[in-house]
Design a protein around this nucleic acid. Structure first.
Lengths: 131, 131
DNA sequence: TCACGAATTTACGTAAAAGTCAATTGAACG
DNA sequence: CGTTCAATTGACTTTTACGTAAATTCGTGA
């Protein structure tokens, strides 16, 4: 069993997650991640790795970089000021709405794919497969 | 009650779905939709409108135009040839995999948003709100 | 008939998200 | 010490998905 690593190199992460170094540097430029440095070389901590996971999750869901930024900001400590807190709770509710919509979209698409499959199975039957 | 319309104008659809005419023409250029014509003017049938719904659903899920093309192709009649049918069933299963991944991503994100909200509520309590 | 509003085509522009290439820099190894 | 390998920066390029503007056409109503 491998203990939790202190640091990951950039290529370790690119291999693990199937992204390029350019991508990771791009995310850093955009302020999504902040790996530390030894000299000029980036060192990614477990927290950076975790953040990257969240970024890629957002990408899979079709969120843009700036939208992902927004979401990531929410994960950081909740703000101190009253108005800010309410604003954040409003943002959370909005994101929930988007995600629920996406979930409905997924269910609908899955249902349609089921129909496609059924059609295929029927065609196979017509062709005399497995009779 | 309004019966099902025979045709929709391009602007009717743009208003209903909140997209531009440019977008609809672009989708036509890309071969996603095929409205009929009266002279040069496009006439969108209910089936085109339905297709557009599916396209926008795909967009919300972060699929690219070409991926949406692929999915739409599946909705058309299942192919006749045996090998083609098996290929299509394989594609269906792949898409299902992607969609299930997205669904997991959604659940995880929703769970994290719940935590964000809880953090907010705690902060509110600390600030003496509603005590 | 003239003007209008809605639609068209053609063409160029653009923002986002990287890809690609070149030149450089250390660090390490035999 | 030379070289090799991983990493860096900087600049330019590319792809996707439209936006935008110009010039034109068509049907309709005053």
């Amino acid at each position: 069993m491998s203990a939790i690593r202190e640091y990951y190199s950039i290529t370790e992460l690119t291999r693990e997650f199937g992204v390029s170094t350019r991508t990771l540097r791009f995310y850093e430029d955009e302020g999504l991640i902040h790996p530390v440095r030894r000299g000029r070389t980036r060192l990614f901590r477990p927290s950076d790795r975790h953040l990257l996971k969240q970024i890629l999750r957002g990408k899979r869901l079709g969120f843009s970089i700036s939208e992902i930024q927004e979401i990531i900001q929410m994960y950081k400590a909740p703000p101190g000021e009253l108005g800010q807190i309410h604003l954040m709770m409003k943002r959370v509710e909005e994101k929930r709405g988007e995600l629920r919509q996406k979930r409905r979209d997924i269910e609908e698409t899955l249902a349609e794919l089921d129909q496609v499959e059924e059609g295929c199975i029927e065609r196979l039957a017509e062709l005399g497969v497995n009779t």
